[in-house]
Amino acid sequence: MGESTKITVEGSSPLENAIKVAFATKDMQSVNAHFGGAKEFVVYKVSKEGFELSEVVKTDTEDMEGDDKTDFKVKALKGINIMYCESIGGTAAAKVIRSGINPMKVQEPRAIEDILKELVVMLKNNPPPWVKKAMNIQTKNDPRLERWTVE
């Protein structure tokens, strides 16, 4: 049966309203692995204040088949808000989304640090509503909310 190991890293400072972002990687530096084939996911906490390494999730699903692999990886990534990968199949993407993880595909291998910096900028400015929800930030002053108010 597959093996999952989480290597937790103690952070130096608490990040308020941080989201957890996982990256499918072969080298711990870049998003360069397919979701189904990834043997490691490096996880960071990301907030307006910055980012810090949270944990490394090592998954070995070589001796598993089909849906068991996907179910195993989804379970191992419990608590993750966003997961970046090179690619992901439709069935796997549906399972990831149902578990509360937002999958993000990169067009080509990208440096994890570059993506983390982009996420910090996005969080400082105006994150989309689904990110605000993940961060437990109340959406205020959003004109779109008026459409759903009851008079």
Rank of each mutant, 00 (worst) to 15 (best):
K117Q: 10
S47M: 01
A18K: 09
I101H: 05
T149Q: 12
I115E: 01
T70M: 12
L116P: 10
E3W: 13
E16F: 02
R147A: 09
K6I: 14
H34I: 02
A94V: 03
S30K: 13
I82T: 06
P129H: 11
K105A: 07
K73M: 12
Q107P: 03
I112Q: 04
A111F: 09
R110K: 15
K117Y: 08
Q107F: 08
E151K: 13
V46A: 03
A18M: 06
V42D: 09
K132M: 15
P127D: 06
A94D: 06
R98Q: 13
D68A: 08
K20M: 10
V46R: 02
A33K: 08
V43F: 05
V9H: 05
E55Y: 04
I80P: 01
N141G: 15
E3C: 12
R110Q: 14
T139Y: 05
A111I: 07
E86S: 15
T59Q: 08
G2F: 11
D68I: 00
K26F: 07
A38V: 01
E10V: 14
M28I: 13
V74Q: 04
V120T: 11
G2M: 09
E86R: 14
K6P: 09
V131W: 06
G2N: 09
I101S: 03
E49T: 05
N81W: 08
L53A: 09
E52N: 03
N102Y: 13
M64I: 10
E118A: 00
R144G: 04
V74I: 14
D114M: 09
Y84F: 15
D142S: 01
D63L: 14
K69C: 11
S4V: 15
L77D: 12
N17W: 01
K133R: 11
G89A: 02
P109I: 05
M1I: 05
L145W: 03
K132T: 10
L53T: 04
F51M: 06
K75Q: 11
L119C: 00
N17V: 03
K132D: 11
P129R: 14
G36E: 07
K105V: 10
K132N: 14
E40N: 13
Q107G: 11
K140T: 15
N17K: 07
P103R: 00
S30G: 01
T61G: 08
K69N: 08
K105E: 12
V9T: 03
V120W: 06
R98P: 06
C85P: 00
K140A: 14
E55I: 01
F72D: 15
F51W: 11
A111S: 05
D60A: 07
E62L: 05
K39F: 08
K48Q: 08
S54Y: 14
E55D: 09
F51Q: 04
I88Q: 02
N17F: 05
S4A: 14
C85D: 00
T70Q: 12
S4R: 15
G2A: 14
E10K: 15
P127A: 01
V120S: 04
D142W: 05
T139Q: 11
F72G: 10
N102L: 10
T25I: 03
M1R: 03
E113Y: 00
F51K: 01
R144P: 00
G2C: 10
I88E: 02
P14I: 13
H34L: 03
T61F: 07
T70S: 13
I82K: 08
S30C: 09
W130Y: 14
S47Y: 07
D71W: 01
T25H: 04
E52C: 02
V21A: 01
M104K: 11
T139I: 15
T61H: 07
K26S: 15
K6F: 12
N141I: 08
